[in-house]
Structure formats: C-alpha cells, structure tokens
Design a protein around this nucleic acid. Structure first.
Lengths: 512, 512
DNA sequence: GAGTTGGCACCTAGGTGGCAAAAT
DNA sequence: ATTTTGCCACCTAGGTGCCAACTC
C-alpha cells in the first residue's frame, strides 16, 4: 500500500493485522549517518515538545523576514548518529502501553528528499490555479518516536518564506525581488491529513503522504485548498498534533495552543507561479511526474516503431515521412505448416514474419495495407503479455480491435465468418454503431485492389495463395502507423502465432 | 461534495465553515410519509440504544436460519409520521453540548432505496472476484438523531441471510436452494467508513456512502475486502458506533460490546455470484452503473451520427455500410463572405453547412474527404461547449486533433503554414514520432486527387475557389466515420464559425 | 509586456460486463 | 455441466503541461 491514501485500507487491512500499541520497526536505513547528509534521500527533523515552531498566525499577515518560522533547517542537526541508533534499538523496548508520554523527541523525515533537492537546486516552482493544483513533488514524511497508543492529527500548511514578490528574469534564469506583498489578510489554510486522527503506531508504520493537497490562487476558494499568492516564496510545514480527547479536533482550522510539533524542510521551499518560468523546472516535472508522461522527451524511450526499427536489420526502406515505404517483419513461426512468403518486392530481408505492412504511398492517400495473421492457437490469448506497452495505449489509437481478432477454426468458424460477413469481431463493441448491419469497422477483408497502386501490390499477395487471409486496415499516415508497429511488437511477442489457413481466391482477391 | 469520500474536504472545507455542535438541517423530503412507503426512495430504520441488533459473531459460523440477525426489516415501521416531524422540528432545539446523550433514537435511512428495490424485485446479484468487486448499487445512508458533538464510527458488514447454497435455474429464472453452506469459519470483515471517527453533526450533514466497499471470494484476501462465499444470500448491515475516547477504536475489527446501533434493509439482500446469472440483473446494472456505460443499449442514445441523421432532413443518401454515400451538412454561417457551394453532385439539399463529408466509396477503399472550416474567430475557442459529448470521446477515435486546428490569420499565420508544410498543428503531440520531420498526422492539406473518384470530386471543390481550405482526413469506414460525424456535431454547435480564407490553387488543388 | 485563464491532447488509475479458457 | 478466472474493450475520473487568448 502506498502511503495512507486509502483510509479504508488502514482500517480494514493493515490496522487489523497489526498488533495494537506495539511499536513497529520501520526501515531506517541511512538515517544514522549525519542528518544533514545531502546524499540522503530523507531529511530528518526533531520536534521539541516545548514548541519548536512558532504558532500559527491566525488571520495574520505574512512574516516579514526569511526564516521567521522558527523550525529552522539548522535544527536538522540536533539529533543524529548515536541517539539515532539508540532509537533504533529502543524500538525493542516494551512501549509503556498505559503511559502515553513519548519516550523521546518526535522525529520527522522527509521522503523523496533527493527529488526535492533536484528541484531546489534549480529553483522549485509550483503551479497554482483557480481550481487547485497538486504539488509535485508532494510532501511525504515518515514520523518516529510517537507514542504508539496516543492519537495524533497530522496536518500540513504552507508558510510564506518572506513578504516579497518575485519575478523571473529569463536571461539570467533567476528569481529577483519585484516588490513587497500586499498584505491581503487571508487566514492560512490547514490541510489535515485525511487519516487523522490515528494512533501513533499506525502513523509510524508507513509513509504519510500529502499528495492530495492542492494549491490555489483563488482567495474565494471553497474547496479547502491552500490559498497562496502567485510569485511568492513558500515552504510547507508538517504538524504533529496530539489528540486531546476533551476537544473535538475534527474541525480544526488552526493549530491548537499546545501539543503541536511542527517541521519544515529547506529543500521544499518553492515559488508559486501560474505558468512555469524556468524551463529546467518544466523539464524535471515532465520527467518525474507520471501524469506528465505525455510530454516526455521521446528520445530516451521513443515510439515502439523506433524501437523495432533499431532492433531489426531491415531498417532501410522504412521512413516516417510521406515517402513510400514497406515494412516486412520477421519472426519465428511455430508451425511449419504456415508457408509464408515474401509478400512485397520491396522487402529486402528474409520474410517469415507473420505480417506485413505496406503503404500505397501516394503522397496524400495514406492508404495502407496490413496483412496480419489470425491467431490460430488459443495459447495466444492466454500467453502472458510481455509487451511493455499497456493495452490502453492501443485504445487511443483506435485500433484495439485489431487484437480482438479471435482464434479461429478454418472456415466454418463463426467469428471468421462474421468478420468476413462484415460483422463485429467477438470482442468488438461500438455502441454508436450497434444495431446497424454494419461491417467490422476495423478489420475488413480485402476484396479488391484499392487504388492506382493497389494492383501492383496485390498480385504479390494473391499469388501466395492459401495459407493466410488478408485483412486490410486503412489509416492516416503517422499515428496509426505507430499503431501498426505496435501490432508488430505484439506479433513479435507471440511467437507461437500461426498464419490462418483460410481460402483466398487468387484472381478476385476475395477472402472466401 | 458527494458523500464523505474525501476526508480532506470534510476537514478542510465543509467542516470548517460549519458551526460545530449545531444541528444542521438536512433535506428530509418525503420521509414524513410512512416509513414503509414503497414509493419512497429511502428506507428508514431506528436503532434502539438497548441494542437492536445481535452482536457480531467473532469468528463464528454463519447463522442457521433466515433473519437471525435481530434487526428485522419489520422494524422499519417502528417509527414514522408524527415522530418523524417531531425530529424535524427538534432539530432547532439547542443541542446539549456537554451532554452527549442523544435526545432520541438514532435513525438511518437508506439512500437510493428505489434502485435497490428495482434490483430486489428481480433478485439482486453481486459479483465477487478474487481482486474484490464493488457493490452496485452501493450502500448509502443518511443518519439522524445522532448527538452532534459525540464522535461516532460508522461501519458496514455483510451478514449471511441463511446457511444455504443456491443455484440459478435458467429456465425458470429462479434461485433454488442447492445445499447447505460448508461452514468455513472466516471471521466476518468489518468495513469502517473511511471518515470515521467523526462528529455526529458531520455525519448527519451528508450522505454516508459505502461505495468503496469491495466484495471478494478470496478467503486469503489481505486487502481488507469483505469475504463472502459465492452463490449465497447476504444482507449488508450498517453500524453506528459511539466513540469511547478511552478505547482506541482505530483498529477495530469487530463490533464493541456496547454503544452500537445496527441497521439493515430488506431490499439490500443479494446473492453472490462470480458471473451474472439473471440477464435482467445484467441489464439493470449496465443501465445504471456509469462504469458500464460502454455496454449500454445504444437504442436510446445512439451514436452522434445517428442523432445527426435524424435531426437533418437529408438523411436519404447516407448509410453506414459499404455503399457509397455523401453527407452534406447545412448550418448558418456567420460570414456572408464565405461562399460555400454544393460540393458534390450527389448532395440533394441546399448546401451552406461549413463542412462536408464525402466518401470515395470504392467498396473497400475507405478513403474519405473531409472539408472542414477553419475557425476564424476567437469566439469559437472561448464559446462554452454545448456538446453533450465529453471531449475525451474524440481521443479514442484518434481524431482529436481535428479540433485542435487553431484560429488562423489569412496566410502568414504560423499554424496554418506549419499545417500546410506538413508540420504538426499546434496542439498536436505525438511522443512516438516526436522529433521526426513528419507531417501533420491527421490534418493533411489536400494536394491532389486521391484516387479514381478523386478527380470527379475535386473539380467541385476547386472551382469554389478562395474562401476555404480543404483538408483531408482518411479513415477506415465505420469508426472514424462516427468521428467525422462528431465533428459535424461540433461544427453544429459552433454557429459562429467561419470558413477560412486561404488561397487555393484551382488547377493543382494545392492549398498554398 | 507580464501574468493569468481556459481549453485540450495526453496521460494515470481504475471500475464494468463480455468472452472464452480453465477449473471444479 | 457448472462455476471460476483472466483478459480485454470500453468506460469514468481526474492530473499535466502546452497554447492561445485574455486581463491588467
């Protein structure tokens, strides 16, 4: 389980199997090294029971100077080394189950500190929007030395680092002070972790993630997001709040007067923006945030087609522009009975791959022909998919159904018949066209030459006769070409696929 | 906000604006009618402080007979009418803030009772899977007469109705007893609502939804799902548990000995299955569960194309099969300068619609031509979309970018130029092909006749000269045809769109 | 001109029933 | 013969940066 995002899990599973009020051992790895170690992926802070951090300023104005929050980065070095290992072994002590006073200072470690530092070195920017935007990276912490039996709230807020307004100077790639904050008195919002309240033991057992926090620049926000001003510098704080059963903290909107430990981490400082200023930040965000994968530089992990091109020797004739091209892929066929010939004169290498892709590449016709095998063995369907592509990737390209082609028996087979008759293949559903007597929308048996270039192509296909059924899939040039290549990839993974034996009329080019 | 699904919201927003310990007025609508009213969409139960329901049987075997759970459906009629309205007005009483004894019996109403009853009349089935399956409908309740200041846990479990095994007899569409349960002693799982614990006031303010509950048939489940046996009858129970601050209830796995009110509703009884038995159940699920929308009968809400066909008089020549067809849509053009002529001889009706779709319908060529307007006014981009289709719908058809065509200035415009030069339109991203000098994959300026039928089509286009730019989009016959129709829908919604004024070479058919 | 906004293509994440193979 | 399982197409829901238009 990732963090505490699902409260239900915490209750229903992990909490249930855990032994209550028994300190769990957490992996503590490198923390016994110097806490300020920049090579560490965590930052450790200890909180003092006597209030290490300044109180929340209710409805107050922004602090005047940097570091007014009294939980200083320097505090980071207060505890380390020896006491750290003390704590490690102290975890074996029997916790005082009825005594809810923690036996040592509360400690909080920032998770993903390494990533935060990567951003911090460039100058972290966080987008804020009217609707609210998540932070990336998000604040994730591990807490230690809580009383396992005590109930705690854990919350986060975001404090101004100073009362300056900033602007980004492109040519120097730097943030410069651009003025002072107009002190709009917005009471700072406190984000209470959704798992609150929770026993110390449960909190300590896992990473506490604030990834659902959203930042907004909408002062009228009514969704509980944290309200910030654009072009200002901020730093998140994490608060560990002892639950006082006498008080209903379920609706706390500001920190209580006592029993609060607060922590912050220098590398989490960021500047709010409505659009990224520093392109290095953009790049790093795109590179690390899974939701931005669509923007990633394809250089590293290019399209499957590219991968195929590189992994096969026949690269030559293929190109991605409008020029004519031919692909002839080659794979090991499991069945000696499937006699596959080289289908196209343009192909150079030996041709045993179970499908071929060709283009009738008049410059703008974008009409392609795909000869694909019909999977003749059931093992195809049940073989574990080794494709690195999620199947969803096909969806967006609109060619999922190519794969939906079922295993078939020679000719009396119902799915084949339905395909030949222009019905839907079994797995295909199209609610828009449902009920019409339409044909299979994506897999269409090839009946005749397609255009000017068709005849020059088809003889090569038809004279191979018997062992395969030719299907045609037409698609616009580039995106679907990728799709085709993905099918190539699939076929490649399916080493036991067979070409379908289905009748092919050599002169009419009809698939019977 | 829907239910309490986001704890963060409960804390950060709604809870914060609410006045603590003041009973909120909830919409109570028809509840003052007889509680047993079958026409009502809620079922109301009252719980007795003296334990209306049998205790949880820890690790126990299934009950032997039906209705062993003592919270009977019949209890449903205990309270109604007069007291109901009493409670309504009692809501204005000042709650005794320091006295946490509720002033009347706790009441729980099932939300969505009407839907539950629809299922119940057929014989509700719930799929159970190894990974866990949600319930549909899900248990959603409203609670009343809690002490606003008292903290409560609210939980759900699922109790066997009897200890019989059932099988479905298809020819009689009935569930028949097929034997007795083998008493596998799996301790029943308790699903604690993720918002627990929470103040009575907060609970009462909104619908409490158990839609995240998952049912499983995996006895070894470690994800906290509720474990049931297939082909058995069950009924969910809802428990209101007073929070005893002396006890840590955050890890409760069974109901405490006191302070629990339990409720169940006869219409929520269901039979567990691994695959639906009664097709009426399947149909109702598909009809009502948004996640099953893909399986819905398109008869009611068919494809947009169908809708267009019906809403326009020119239906005649269009068909969805392989036959040749022509569409000529007609809309009101904002600009009198855009002289659009009837583009195709096949078109019958008057032709002023800003685009046309035609097919060079050789039986299997599937090469179509789309003439579409370029949106010339910024108001197009900013006009509120009235299309009932989510934009995502286009994604799956692979033609999103058609819409991405930007508003353009006559010819020096960069996006247009890039489009004409075969570059990507501004909004288009294709990571797979990124970096290649490829052309616009989906919007390709029309340069020349496309095939045998091309020349006969293009003269009609080219001699309209000046005011538009012709783009071509090729697509396989059926699915993308729908996509085209969706663009028709978009264009229809965009009443102020303008045909683009861009040069068109009348003899070469090139878009300059 | 600088900063903000809204639309959108492209993702992640995950819920649904259909289907056919597998298990019982 | 019945029940279960795994895969899949098709959805919902929502997070991301890009872009053009808007605002000040």
């Amino acid at each position: 389980m990732q963090g505490l995002s699902s409260r239900a899990h915490a209750f229903s599973v992990e909490a249930l199997v855990g032994k209550p009020c028994k300190r769990m051992k957490v992996s503590e790895g490198h923390e016994s090294s110097s806490a300020g170690d920049t090579g560490s992926d965590t930052s450790i802070f200890t909180g003092l029971h006597e209030y290490p951090v300044s109180q929340t300023k209710k409805g107050g104005s922004a602090p005047r100077g940097p570091e007014e929050t009294s939980c200083e980065p320097q505090r980071q070095t207060v505890r380390s080394g020896a006491e750290e290992s003390d704590a490690d072994h102290g975890g074996e002590n029997k916790p005082k189950e009825n005594d809810c006073r923690p036996d040592r200072e509360v400690r909080v470690e920032l998770q993903g500190s390494e990533l935060w530092k990567r951003f911090y070195e460039i100058g972290t920017e966080m987008i804020i929007t009217k609707a609210g935007r998540r932070m990336f990276p998000s604040v994730r912490v591990k807490v230690r030395n809580l009383d396992p039996c005590q109930q705690y709230y854990i919350a986060m807020d975001v404090m101004p680092v100073d009362s300056k307004r900033y602007r980004y100077v492109y040519h120097s790639s730097q943030w410069m002070v651009a003025g002072n904050t107009d002190h709009s008195c917005i009471s700072p919002r406190l984000y209470v972790h959704p798992d609150s309240p929770c026993a110390g033991e449960t909190w300590m057992r896992q990473v506490i993630s604030f990834d659902r926090v959203k930042l907004t620049n909408n002062e009228m926000d009514d969704k509980g997001h944290i309200i910030l001003q654009s072009m200002h510098k901020y730093k998140p704080r994490v608060h560990i709040i002892q639950h006082d059963p006498r008080m209903d903290l379920s609706q706390i909107q500001s920190l209580p007067a006592e029993g609060v430990h607060s922590f912050s981490f220098p590398e989490t400082e960021f500047t709010t923006v409505t659009a990224y200023q520093n392109q290095q930040i953009t790049k790093l965000k795109i590179d690390r945030n899974p939701f931005a994968k669509g923007f990633r530089d394809p250089g590293r992990n290019r399209g499957v087609l590219d991968g195929l091109l590189e992994s096969y020797p026949w690269r030559g004739p293929l190109s991605l522009d409008f020029k004519p091209f031919t692909i002839q892929l080659q794979g090991s066929l499991g069945s000696p009975t499937s006699g596959v010939k080289s289908l196209l004169p343009l192909s150079s290498s030996s041709s045993l791959h179970p499908f071929s892709v060709s283009a009738l590449s008049c410059q703008d016709a974008a009409l392609h022909t795909l000869t694909l095998p019909l999977y003749g063995k059931t093992s195809v369907a049940s073989s574990p998919s080794t494709s690195p592509l999620p199947s969803r990737a096909f969806s967006s390209l609109g060619v999922d159904r190519l794969r939906g082609l079922p295993p078939l028996a020679p000719i009396t087979d119902l799915p084949l018949l339905s395909a030949l008759q222009g019905k839907k293949p079994p797995h295909y559903r199209d609610p828009c066209l449902h009920g019409s007597a339409g044909s299979s929308p994506c897999l269409i048996p090839l009946h005749s030459p397609l255009g000017p270039q068709g005849p020059s192509l088809l003889p090569h296909l038809s004279d191979t006769a018997g062992p395969y059924c030719l299907y045609r899939y037409s698609f616009p040039l580039n995106p679907q070409l990728t799709a085709i290549s993905r099918h190539a990839k699939l076929a490649e993974d399916t080493t036991d696929c067979l070409l379908r034996q289905s009748p092919w009329h050599p002169t009419t080019n009809h698939c019977l």
